[in-house]
Design a protein around this nucleic acid. Structure first.
Lengths: 196, 196
DNA sequence: ATTTTAACTGAACATATGTTCAGATCAAAG
DNA sequence: CTTTGATCTGAACATATGTTCAGTTAAAAT
């Protein structure tokens, strides 16, 4: 009637976040009520406040966690001192693979920026800029080395990120193409886009 | 106290749609109330129902109108019997220019699909598929003629649309680059992406 | 001038939402 | 076994939402 048998914050907490992520991605932050999230977890809405101060923090934390994870993973997996073309290939494959494994988080990290408070928006946007900046740095290094022919590295970075992230709107594991095939196709397009 | 002096449905109707478009784009459909839209127009919420059966229809009609306008404009402006490369250039420039002039409508046509009823989603999605299909047809013609080297026209079409539509997330008229400059840069990238 | 139609208000209605918190039950510690 | 801490319920609270509609005022028609 009150405390659920076997419950523990280490179990319920992640389930709250998971449910929120799934529901926000499917229906949108504003369209999902705390009661819906609670029902998904199997508790009443009031219980959610043991795990989040409020609804806005729940969204902001999901987005920040995703961006932090993205940057940490990218940092860990990025080879040092690669030639620009290798670095670009790595970025391309990393982006597709990492994001495909986290479709919901990627989705809301673009779709729900409008629902963040100004403070939270600034926080998430700063993280996004860091990631974009890494691609731009690769492109600039390629231009400087003569490996790439790019009229405007910043615009090109934006275009490539949009292209790569677009995979998330349609890729399905059970689809016609495997993720590896999609990586190949996209790397081919990216390579040609910057080719001399 | 009741009817506003000088009011007419040909004036208020479009203002309702305009206010809805602006507010939906800025805050998201679910986060915007009918009272907010009404306030933007300068009427009470109950008055909106002279112009739309319900909130969902307001959104669906905005999306459908945009897609219809896009397809009509694209049909009217597309030269007949162009070589694939010319057709692709035209598509690229058309997409950027047309959408830049309708940033809010483009934005919600991607961001608010989740908030459509199943019936309305099907309706809008079908229109989107028509547009995508036109790009794919250009790419296929280019492959058939030997002008393009593309491993998968359908995937390439999705990638290019994502790249081109991405302009809408950051382009500002008062920005560093003019729309014409952006068209040039993007056409350069698109041309190289499909190059033999 | 009168009647009809158009365009609105304001109040109401039936829910719905984010959040709080006293009390209840489970789990861990002593 | 008792006490303390953890995790929940259910009710309440203060708003907020989409929508309806009788009545009011402006515009158009007669």
């Amino acid at each position: 009637m009150a405390r659920t048998i076997g419950s523990h914050s280490d179990i319920t907490g992640p389930r709250v976040r998971e449910a929120a992520l799934t529901l926000f991605a499917r229906h949108g932050y504003a369209a999902v009520s705390m009661r819906q999230i609670a029902a998904e977890v199997g508790v009443q809405a009031g219980a959610l406040y043991n795990y989040t101060p409020d609804k806005q923090s729940l969204l902001a934390d999901l987005l920040a966690a995703h961006m932090d994870e993205l940057l940490v993973a990218h940092t860990a997996e990025t080879p040092k001192n690669s030639a620009p073309t290798d670095a670009l290939e790595h970025f391309t494959r990393f982006h597709i693979r990492f994001n495909a494994a986290r479709a919901d988080a990627v989705f809301i990290s673009y779709m729900e920026l409008r629902n963040l408070s100004a403070e939270n928006f600034g926080r998430i946007e700063a993280l996004r800029r860091v990631y974009e900046g890494r691609l731009e740095a690769i492109l600039r290094a390629g231009v400087a080395s003569g490996a790439f022919d790019i009229p405007d590295p910043k615009i090109t970075a934006l275009a490539l990120i949009a292209m790569l992230t677009g995979v998330n709107t349609w890729f399905r594991e059970a689809g016609r193409l495997s993720l590896a095939e999609i990586e190949e196709i996209y790397w081919g397009m990216v390579r040609k886009t910057v080719a001399v």
